[in-house]
Design a protein around this nucleic acid. Sequence first.
DNA 1: TTGATTACTTTGTACTATACAACTACTTGT
DNA 2: ACAAGTAGTTGTATAGTACAAAGTAATCAA
Lengths: 142, 142
Amino acid sequence: MNHRDEALETIQREMTAFARRARAAAAHLHPELSLVSYTLLSHLETRQGMRATDLAAHYLLDKSTISRQIGALERSGLIERRTAEDDHRVHVLHLTAGGKQALDEATEVRRAAYRERLGDWDEADLDRFAGYLLRYNGADGN
Amino acid sequence: MNHRDEALETIQREMTAFARRARAAAAHLHPELSLVSYTLLSHLETRQGMRATDLAAHYLLDKSTISRQIGALERSGLIERRTAEDDHRVHVLHLTAGGKQALDEATEVRRAAYRERLGDWDEADLDRFAGYLLRYNGADGN
DNA sequence: TTGATTACTTTGTACTATACAACTACTTGT
DNA sequence: ACAAGTAGTTGTATAGTACAAAGTAATCAA
């Protein structure tokens, strides 16, 4: 295996290892909001008015899975579903005040964990790492 | 939010988004070996003779979860459990030939996907990215 | 304008991954 | 040799997920 493949292998392995721990890590950090709920809320915050279908595509999930997830979030009062005026097939999704608050609390806890974890990194490295991740995720449509 | 926090925020967000897609991505790439099974086999390959408890700690999973996972892998003939000679409470885990083969096949598929995805990165960037991931994961014990 | 087709979502069903608690089996330190 | 600790399994409950089928609304073609 050449040098390039070794780097790819490392990236593959480390990204995967991280992914594998993320759910449990989230559960420990903020037990009241699962990783799944957190990511959905977080996505809705930056893109209010998104459709269920868009979320499904983004997270590579089945539409039925998303339907149930947002159903649960709605029942918990964290989001609102509104039927779109122009197309009555569509439900547009919005964070409620409670949803925003729950999200903010979880985000603060997560931020603290990352600040701690990356505390000894200098700013240039953080920037480059962030840039690489954006580029990586952007590649297949983040 | 200062610059440093913005970089942290990006890292947090992008790592999380990636994690959220990894399971489904794996299911599409190699349906015959889930992300969970893949990571366990992969870990065993590099560290033959590992104990169930070690896997649980590494992946932040409950020992019962690991117990059932390795039970399933054993029933599928992908790994072997051997009682340790020096401590009869302990089961050490080994990849079987079949397990090695299944792992190799999935790894090849994954490698191809990463090669594709990162095809336009130059080698210096791949190296730095890999380095950052190692550093990041190493921080809390990978 | 209505019947077919398409688009978005929900529901029925089944399975996998997971946690927590209780238990069994073994080991170790005093 | 027994109390305390460690490794693993089993009972039970729940969340997350997929796939297939159905429901509902919009659009398009004749």
